[in-house]
Design a protein around this nucleic acid. Structure first.
Lengths: 107, 107
DNA sequence: TTGTTACATTGCAATATTACGATATATTAA
DNA sequence: TTAATATATCGTAATATTGCAATGTAACAA
């Protein structure tokens, strides 16, 4: 007990859930919003921007990266992180399907 | 330590994060997908549909309800749960804004 | 080489989540 | 009232997440 029973759900469902989960933290939403507006996406900027310690931000970046929501490439001494729009679209499509497939006789 | 530092983020960010978080579990994605296709949205159906115990499903329904993603109304002995499309749209709009505001010179 | 800058990783305490058996509650049926 | 059905709540063990100080690493500068 204590662990999510992922085995009993389809891969598609697990993938969607892990993407949503990765976005389910205010620091990670703030990171995504910040990345969206920056020309250069570097971790130091985030440390100055967000009221969290550097290791904490690094950890959140790692989670977003593991989920595939952001990508990072080394650029000299710093790292350029940016959004992966494919994953964003994947979530977007799922949400859109909920809106259009709704059964009108429900509730 | 151990608690999310919600106080340091805006209300808008916290609201988005809690909606995403509520969807960040495979059982809850499965519930949402199932609700979308049913005419009557009753917990017993979910107990038959999902390989999880009834208290577990009830707990997941409660989390979705607390986040505002689903609404439930008593209907005799059972309860009719259904999607709240307003919240779905709220997430959808956020994701859409990420796609269109992306700075082209980034990465 | 030495220092500096920009991150990443480790380790750990505090807290949150997940799952479920047992039990409670509320509605309808007999 | 008694029983059955549908769902919620409680309690708890197992596990995951959050945040950060301390430390590690890798690149560049002097």
């Amino acid at each position: 007990m204590g662990t999510t029973k992922s085995e009993v759900f389809s891969e598609e469902i697990n993938e969607l859930a892990s993407l949503f989960k990765a976005m389910g933290h205010p620091a990670r939403i703030a990171i995504i919003q910040f990345l969206r507006t920056q020309e250069k996406c570097i971790c130091t900027d985030l440390v100055n921007e967000l009221p969290l310690a550097q290791p904490t931000i690094s950890q959140h970046l790692k989670e977003l990266k593991t989920a595939g929501i952001i990508q990072g490439s080394v650029s000299g001494t710093s790292i350029c992180y940016c959004l992966n729009l494919d994953k964003i679209s994947q979530l977007d499509s799922f949400l859109a399907s909920l809106k259009y497939d709704q059964n009108p006789t429900c509730c």
